[in-house]
């Protein structure tokens, strides 16, 4: 190979390498549109335990005696987990409506909400309702102290009260039957306003609002 040919090859190799490197560098950091619209976004995101809707009855002493010892529960309940209707209105116009159920095949797992709505920048009235669809009330009366405090003795002493307390705790942990959020917000371009459920305050709470 002549020296001129060798030089030409080195030059062509250098040019091709530089072009390849520049193409690689360019292709690895190509600015591509992600949210081209200047719209703001309202994001609803929370998880909570769905309410358990139950029909309960207090077992008599005879019925209890027929059960194995480890299954002697004073109050027996049968029921299902509640479903909820989520509705969002912006400036009086419906922006979205959906039904929310607990996760899992039997909907007995916590429910998860993640909805996003693009909203034009500016001031808007936002109205969010989250309410239970089922009208049936739970059978709280079954947990009323129908049985005398001293009715259960021995290892079963205080059973009815413990069951009632546990029932109350579960009801407390569930999301309320109805949540409502009604306010006017200023939405900045390409900013996210987050509406979430505050379990301590048992209410919807806003993040990131101007």
């Amino acid at each position: 190979m002549s020296s001129a040919h060798r030089l030409a090859r080195v030059a062509s190799a250098a040019v091709m390498t530089i072009v390849a490197i520049m193409a690689l560098a360019r292709a690895t950091a190509l600015p591509l549109a992600y949210h081209p619209s200047p719209a703001a976004r309202l994001r609803l995101s929370f998880s909570a335990r769905p309410e358990r809707i139950e029909v309960c009855r207090t077992l008599s002493a005879e019925e209890l005696a027929q059960r194995p010892e480890h299954m002697r529960q004073r109050v027996e309940c049968d029921g299902k987990f509640a479903s909820y209707r989520l509705r969002i209105d912006v400036d009086g116009r419906p922006a979205g409506e959906s039904v929310v159920r607990g996760a899992g095949l039997r909907h007995d797992r916590p429910l998860y909400v993640l909805r996003e709505y693009d909203i034009p920048p500016g001031r808007h009235a936002v109205h969010v309702t989250f309410e239970r669809r089922e009208q049936t009330d739970d059978d709280a009366e079954a947990f009323a102290p129908a049985v005398a405090v001293g009715a259960d003795t021995g290892i079963f002493a205080g059973r009815a009260q413990r069951e009632a307390a546990e029932h109350a705790r579960r009801a407390e942990a569930a999301i309320p039957k109805r949540l409502q959020f009604d306010t006017t917000l200023v939405f900045a371009p390409r900013r996210v306003t987050l509406l979430t459920f505050d379990a301590e305050r048992r209410a919807l709470r806003l993040f990131g609002a101007l």
């Binding site: 292709a27 690895t28 950091a29 549109a33 949210h35």
Partner: peptide, 22 residues
């Protein structure tokens, strides 16, 4: 190599650098 602004859950980036190779 490009490094975009730090991720922010409350900001919608108009565009991001994208590696079209990988």
């Amino acid at each position: 190599a490009a490094l975009g602004p730090a991720a922010d859950s409350f900001t919608l980036a108009e565009r991001t650098p994208v590696d079209l190779v990988a």
